[in-house]
Amino acid sequence: MKKEKFNIIKDSCIPLPLENIDTDQIVPARFLKATTREGFGENLFRDWRFDEQGNKIESFVLNDPTYSGQILVAGKNFGSGSSREHAAWAIADYGFRVVVSSFFADIHKNNELNNFVLPVVVTEQFLKELFDSIYANPRTEVIVNLPEQTITNTATGKSETFEINAYKKHCLMNGLDDIDFLLSNKDKIESWEAAR
């Protein structure tokens, strides 16, 4: 897995205004059989992107050349359902660095963070306006500033701040993962066990 350090991203977006997009849609179970983390981008939104014969479904947004960018903008409750991290691997492997929604499911949100994809929670109003901006001009750019924890819709000039805990922010900005951190605390683990 690439641990690409995260700072400020300015790019256009791909809109997916459906609610409750579950991880079975992000990557269907029959593609979970790999034993490595690579190549899942091919199967991102597989059954919405391709028909049963493997032909592209032209109407699906990922097949529409009008829209491009490293920022996925999705409806409320993104990533519900299965804990499969393969969903986050597929999003990252496809080339997304940011997912914007008004609400994320917990496990999937952690999985994105652990794969250096930033989930940005915005208000319903910001999300609605962002969809409107993208549909009015598919080149609309969004600026996601992790150090400042802000997101800006450049079409409207409106900004919001978003939440992320300081530890995870530090990890994303410096390309660090949790195993390194946990193992550096081994003495604490052993003393907890001894005190039990």
């Binding site: 496990i107 952690n110 652990n114 946990l182 683990i189």
Partner: peptide, 22 residues
Amino acid sequence: FGIGTSEVGMVLASQCILQQKP
């Protein structure tokens, strides 16, 4: 509770996990 694969790795390695209290 359910976790992702990176978190499975954390527990395999350290018998611990990093979580926000819900």
